[in-house]
Amino acid sequence: MQNSFYREIINDHNLYPTHKHELGCAGCEHRGINPNCGDDITLKLQMEDGVIKDGAYLGDGCAISQASADIMLDLIIGKRKEEAIRLTDIFLRMIKGEATEDEIEELEEAGALTDVSHMPARVKCAVLAWHTLEQLLHDNAK
């Protein structure tokens, strides 16, 4: 994360998150943990007719793990569940270095995390929120 422009986006979301707060919602939360480094987030979504009406997270961890959660919520709030799943897929492929530039464009600020594909030790931090989202939406579909 040496490019200072991207570093700024991460810092901004880490220090001044928009979505890091409590949110009332029943049965629509999921906790994600990276046991190795202690990153820990609890993601909450308010769903209505298949649309993500609102979302929030709580937790602690490194800047990348926390900023990634905030940026993700910026992107998916207001979107349909299927669209959120599609974007998550793009994000996870981007981190593996397998997404196209057009696809990365669709991720808006989350594209700032593309550098993580060159930082194997930080991959787990970046994808934690997104895997938690996948799990949450998966459980929600049951």
């Binding site: 190795n36 480094c37 490194c62 990348i64 030790a121 930080r122």
Partner: peptide
């Protein structure tokens, strides 16, 4: 205010190798 993993990563950018974790 700085997570140990962020410490190690930024120090690494300055070619300083320290460990972060448990």
């Amino acid at each position: 205010g700085v997570h140990p993993h962020d410490i190690a990563e930024i120090l690494s950018a300055d070619d300083v190798c320290v460990r972060a974790g448990h």
